[in-house]
């Protein structure tokens, strides 16, 4: 297989990568007769402040990969480094946003209390905590919903709360697993723009897993394209579209169409 070594290309791009993935492999039930290889070999780097999307055909082990990147799952072989340190558990400066906000937000806590959870863990005092809650709810453009329970809000608002809670930890990097897959199309556009704004304002690194190619092109600086299971890196595609991006302008540009077409070819031929 003749393909450029993605790790070399990435490290030339920036100084120390925030996230560095080296020959990561993950097999479920390893060593048994039911052994099932989900990820064969994945390597890529994510530079500070970068927005990287991971796409691949469905069943390509995208969620498995994200769980390995976050420290929730231990890879069978290979290494993940976060800010230079090999990943052993979920690092302090990393937050994760899951697809299913209705389950990741604690239904027994109000919005305020959900957002307060990481702050309490970090031992932030009451006054500072309240200020910080207001701050992150404002950052995700949520008004006066602090006293509501998450399930009283719309899907889009719930995912905003989940993002706010992730931001409350003041992470260096945000990992997102299909975060906008469970909301309607209009809300999806709004949330995509929101995450771009948040990322610009707070200068955080984002790795977002999605099956939606258009979404990946719209959001990313670079796109890691996975093959079908067991997944490998098929290609790492640069997205040189200018920022700030707009749903109408960016998506109707010629460059967007070309990238989209290229990615479609990659994803459909690999499955």
């Amino acid at each position: 297989m003749a393909r450029p070594d993605p790790s070399v290309a990435a490290s030339e791009r920036a100084g120390d990568p925030v996230l560095s993935v080296r020959t990561l492999a993950k097999a479920y039930d390893a060593g048994t007769s039911r052994e099932n290889l989900a990820i064969a070999e994945v390597s890529f780097d994510v530079a500070k402040g970068e927005f990287v999307c991971v796409v691949g055909p469905s069943g390509a082990g995208k969620t498995t990969l994200l769980r390995c990147l976050s420290g929730l799952l231990v890879p069978t072989s290979g290494e993940v480094r976060f800010e230079g340190t090999p990943l052993r558990a979920v690092p302090d400066r990393l937050s994760v946003v899951f697809q299913d906000y209705s389950r990741s937000l604690f239904p027994w806590l109000t919005v305020n209390r959900n957002v307060a959870v990481p702050l309490r863990v970090a031992g932030v005092g009451k006054q500072q905590r309240e200020a910080r809650i207001q701050e992150v709810l404002h950052a995700v453009r949520l008004g006066d919903v602090g006293r509501s329970y998450p399930w009283q809000l719309s899907g889009g608002m719930q995912q905003r709360v989940a993002i706010a809670r992730a931001l409350a930890q003041q992470p260096d990097m945000l990992l997102m697993d299909e975060p906008f897959a469970s909301v309607d199309a209009q809300t999806r556009f709004d949330l995509e723009d929101l995450i771009l704004e948040v990322r610009r304002e707070l200068d955080i690194t984002v790795v977002l897993v999605t099956h939606d190619i258009d979404e990946a092109v719209y959001l990313a600086d670079r796109i890691v394209v996975l093959t079908g299971a067991p997944s490998r890196v098929q290609e790492i595609v640069d997205v040189p579209l200018e920022r700030p991006r707009t749903q109408l302008g960016t998506r109707s540009s010629e460059a967007f169409g070309r990238l989209r077409r290229h990615l479609m070819e990659l994803v459909t031929t690999s499955s």
Partner: peptide, 12 residues
């Protein structure tokens, strides 16, 4: 399981 993952991620 999502709640469990969330608890880990929030370092509870």
């Amino acid at each position: 399981p999502v709640v469990r993952d969330t608890a880990v991620v929030l370092r509870l």
